[in-house]
């Protein structure tokens, strides 16, 4: 068995992880550590297994074989009732935003805090504050469908960081955005990363990768074909 990087700072560890969908092997024998406070790009062509890899961390998918440890917890042994509490340590961002269409901008962000049972005055205060940082404070009452793609993704980022998660998982966060909107999204993620959060971005956006903002790992046909060494991680 391949040994992962030897560090106590790993927030997520993968040991020989494989994921199969029927006959298709989506991930093959992946061993990887994701360190606390690092910025990690997962790149590779479409269908390489980037999204599947991210899904394993928050139990959007389960491994076919191998072990995933998140914050020291073996995901294979996590009881279903504990899954929501694990997910609260992740902020998840999707290419298609996944905002709730019948809730306005404020409600979409507040949902994360409501789900945790936070008191209403705290929910109001924090959701407004985050939306102000995201530059969406003037559109708090707007419904998601009335927003541009860039605005929707800003709301999605605000929702992801509202619960102050340890790790941000962003699956192609700029994939459907224009360069200016993409710049704003990366700026918001960078600001949260500077507070000490771990950020994992799945992307094949060459402009993003050219920033040399963090470590890059590359997947091809479900295999980890290239991984840069850990160099401190901060942007």
């Amino acid at each position: 068995m391949t040994q992962p990087d030897n560090t106590d700072e790993a927030v997520i560890r993968l040991f020989n992880v494989s994921k199969r969908f029927g006959a298709k092997l989506a991930l093959s024998n992946i061993t990887l550590d994701v360190h606390k406070g690092e910025w990690l790009y997962v790149t590779g062509p479409s269908g390489a297994g980037k999204s599947t890899l991210l899904k394993l961390f928050y139990l959007g998918e389960k491994t076919t074989s191998g072990q995933v440890l998140a914050f020291g917890t073996n995901m294979n042994r996590l009881a279903p009732r504990d899954v929501p509490f694990l997910r609260r340590r992740f902020g998840i961002i999707f290419q298609d935003f996944k905002l709730i269409p019948n809730r306005n901008v404020f409600e979409n962000v507040a949902l994360v805090l409501e789900a945790r049972g936070e008191p209403q005055n705290m929910i109001d205060k924090r959701a407004r504050n985050i939306l102000r940082h995201a530059g969406m404070d003037k559109r708090m009452e707007a419904m998601p469908t009335s927003l541009s793609g860039g605005e929707q993704q800003r709301v999605a980022v605000a929702r992801a960081i509202a619960g102050q998660p340890d790790v941000i998982l962003a699956d192609e966060p700029t994939g459907s955005l224009d360069p200016r909107s993409a710049e704003i999204i990366i700026g918001l993620l960078s600001a949260y990363h500077k507070k000490g959060a771990t950020v994992m971005v799945a992307t094949h956006d060459r402009d993003l990768l050219a920033r040399k903002q963090g470590r890059i790992i590359r997947l091809e046909e479900g295999r980890l074909v290239a991984a840069e060494p850990v160099t401190g991680g901060r942007a």
């Binding site: 009732r81 929501p84 997910r87 609260r88 996944k98 789900a115 945790r116």
Partner: peptide
């Protein structure tokens, strides 16, 4: 379905 899926992803419990 999507709304419920999103709630699950942001850490909402079954009871919520």
């Amino acid at each position: 379905r999507d709304e419920i899926e999103i709630m699950q992803l942001v850490g909402a419990t079954g009871a919520f």
